[in-house]
Design a protein around this nucleic acid. Sequence first.
DNA 1: CATGAATGAGAGTTCATTCAT
DNA 2: GATGAATGAACTCTCATTCAT
Lengths: 194, 194, 194, 194
Amino acid sequence: MGEKSEQKKQFILECAKKVFMEKGYKDVTMKDIVEACEISRGGLYLYYGSTKEIFMDILHMETQESDDVFSESMPEEATATDILMLFLKEQKKELLRKKNSLILAAYEFLFANKLPKKENPLKRQFDEAVYILENLIESGVESGEFYCEDAKDTARNIMYVLEGLKITAKTIGISEESVDKELLYIIRGLVIEE
Amino acid sequence: MGEKSEQKKQFILECAKKVFMEKGYKDVTMKDIVEACEISRGGLYLYYGSTKEIFMDILHMETQESDDVFSESMPEEATATDILMLFLKEQKKELLRKKNSLILAAYEFLFANKLPKKENPLKRQFDEAVYILENLIESGVESGEFYCEDAKDTARNIMYVLEGLKITAKTIGISEESVDKELLYIIRGLVIEE
Amino acid sequence: MGEKSEQKKQFILECAKKVFMEKGYKDVTMKDIVEACEISRGGLYLYYGSTKEIFMDILHMETQESDDVFSESMPEEATATDILMLFLKEQKKELLRKKNSLILAAYEFLFANKLPKKENPLKRQFDEAVYILENLIESGVESGEFYCEDAKDTARNIMYVLEGLKITAKTIGISEESVDKELLYIIRGLVIEE
Amino acid sequence: MGEKSEQKKQFILECAKKVFMEKGYKDVTMKDIVEACEISRGGLYLYYGSTKEIFMDILHMETQESDDVFSESMPEEATATDILMLFLKEQKKELLRKKNSLILAAYEFLFANKLPKKENPLKRQFDEAVYILENLIESGVESGEFYCEDAKDTARNIMYVLEGLKITAKTIGISEESVDKELLYIIRGLVIEE
DNA sequence: CATGAATGAGAGTTCATTCAT
DNA sequence: GATGAATGAACTCTCATTCAT
């Protein structure tokens, strides 16, 4: 398969992604994806043999693209607090998003397919986020903005809270107010108020 | 439906529960449940019209039974710390359990069926746990065991962390060590060390 | 599955047999059989999971029924020569039959599925025919009708010739005249002419 | 089609032959042959429109090449008995061969495609073998090695036995011992023992 | 000539659901 | 009430065949 076929794969992934965002993982059939791509039944099978294959590629694609939150569009003189606030705001936006989210599909996928940790893109994403948060916290401590005994432990704790909020949002539902309250709790545990 | 029919329903729920624990929610077919109950196909339809109906009843049944953690087998003279430790230990046991858990099925179910908050048994369960934790924390503060500015906020935070650990365990996997570290983090944030 | 289901199976086998006689083995699909039986797609799968299963049952059924050639409708005073002639005549009829024959399908089936000898109904049928022929020849020798050095060897040889005629008829074709000539050759090698 | 194209056809036939030897006739798809030839899907269709066309050409090719058994490597002074023995030995080798045989594919092909006798290469091959055997027997009779009333009839009979052995080997299976016994039976019916 | 991506028909198989008994 | 045979819709997957390049 040459370059062209790589383009087609990309095209399929884009179309399929919409389907997964709409229907989650388990409910999606090859037929759904065929229809979303507006290609033929057999045509899809030239590139992918199952929804699982497709979803794994989407997951890899997605987790590659992300984490740019921190690097992108951040002014030079931003304080650690600024960055933390921005990060949490992004997370809030993501977890309150009703549509256009792959989270549900990703969870469903991981329920059904226990990946070895090395190949689990969400594991990588989680660990990376912890690492970045840790550095951020340390820099905040240095600059006197934050108080924190162990940056790594705190970073991890924040991530678990965020995961908890995410799954809560998707299962029992959560109000924006509740999210705000929780994020504030995090911030208050960290930032030194004057 | 008479009493007899209520018994039969109970019987079906018990059998179906095993299936859901085994296979999650989405993969379970009426056929699976028929086979687990060793009743006839038509027989099952006399009581339940879909796996969804069945699972909803199981969920209600389960959330009714639970929360006994706190009330059961707790000596009179137990301190708030004792009770908290016991609670967290229970949670740890639950979230590390590989089999015999309905968590996955429940998540899958809630992904697929957005219930109104009032009817969502997991919402009730979450709120109850928060309430109980809150009281526990307050009593710990009163007894001088804990330090805490806002018992309700802290209780909620702990619950989100636990939810985060639960979903992490089921998706990207988590080691017992990591769980312990996190629970310790919670305790250290609360208990006044001498 | 009770008695009723056994009847249904019989019914399916009868219908399927016609299909196999028509189309051989490999070309027959479950759909063909469904249509021949005039039942539903899923209905067939209640009884048989593949054309292979069906054909094996047909083969067993068929080889059970046969070999009655010798026992049926044979007058008491029939000589060995009479019986031999009748047997060969039956064989001739069978091998010249254009339609209504399972031979082709059976061959195709055995090409594709190497059965262990014990389970191969054609093996049993062949061996039985050899045995019966052997006894017939011996009785002919005793009565002075036949000359033969070794009845078993001769019986076997005759069966191989018949097999050769059968496959020839089905592949390169054979005229009735050629069959007659060959059967005559067999008879002349056995019967003592006056 | 030029010479070059004829070469390509030859190449395709050689590759396809291996596939047919491996899988028989019916199971072989154009895709299989494309893969075996390592050419493009469309490329194959430039030369052949179906597996049937391909197999017919292979069959013609094969039956042209054969029958060299008698002509090849036969010493001048060989007796009729020597030659007969060699012939039967060759036949035995062929019919016991498990792999690398087109017999099965040829049978399957002829089951599915009733060729007019003139175009049936196996018919030609059979007739030629009868003719050669007939001459051999006559020469053996003349040299006093064989006893035989009608050489043509005997030749034909031998060929049917061999066909019978061949199909038996491919369907119900046959042991080398059984083949030997049968070949011995043929020889004893012909050769004058001293 | 040669390529191989694309198409769509068709086979296999599984289940939710019904219904005569 | 209870049964389980029967139905048919839906999905997966594979190929023969075509056609733009």
